[in-house]
């Protein structure tokens, strides 16, 4: 099963390597990982998407907590959090598909952030399904490149982290 982990870490050199090393060293899998500073510059926030049964997830969570630089680990369950990622998609454009492409972008509330004679770069934000859907739709036009940020996630409601 897939899990999204929210991990608060001390913003110190080598922390990312410790976390990544823990996953590789114990044979756990990382599907995506994002990391950036929080409001407190001493603390960074990681969102890690991983896969495994309950026992594996329990181990991952405990092992992360065991790292000295890890302050807090939360395993988001389905439904109690919001997650988003950004994708940049470079699509071939020709005269006969330009208007169709623009209307798809509009429907998905995406943006064209770079234009050349042969291609657009589309910026799209959303959950995984939304990004998968737009990729599916524009694929027939010819995708040159896709870059995704990986998920960021936040707890719903009044609680933080």
């Amino acid at each position: 099963m897939r899990h999204t982990l929210s991990v608060l870490v001390e913003n110190k050199p080598g922390v990312l390597s410790r976390v990544a090393g823990l996953f590789s060293g114990r044979g756990f899998n990382i599907e995506s990982l994002t990391v950036a500073e929080t409001l407190d510059p001493m603390v960074s926030h990681m969102t890690i998407v991983t896969r495994g049964n309950d026992q594996i997830l329990e181990q991952i969570t405990k092992q992360l907590n065991k790292l000295i630089n890890v302050i807090k680990v939360v395993d988001f369950m389905d439904g109690d959090h919001v997650d988003r990622e950004i994708a940049l998609i470079k699509v071939n454009v020709k005269d006969d598909n330009r208007s169709e492409l623009l209307s798809i972008i509009d429907i998905f509330r995406g943006k064209v952030v770079d234009v050349s004679s042969q291609s657009y770069i589309i910026e799209i934000t959303g959950d995984e399904d939304k990004i998968a859907a737009i990729i599916d739709l524009v694929k027939p036009m010819g995708i040159k490149d896709v870059v995704r940020t990986g998920k960021v996630a936040m707890m719903r409601g009044g609680k933080s982290k």
Partner: peptide, 16 residues
């Protein structure tokens, strides 16, 4: 050595 011993120490660091 910090990189090399990361998986076999409880904690390690380079003094900056």
């Amino acid at each position: 050595i910090v990189g090399i011993t990361r998986p076999c120490t409880k904690h390690n660091f380079l003094l900056n």
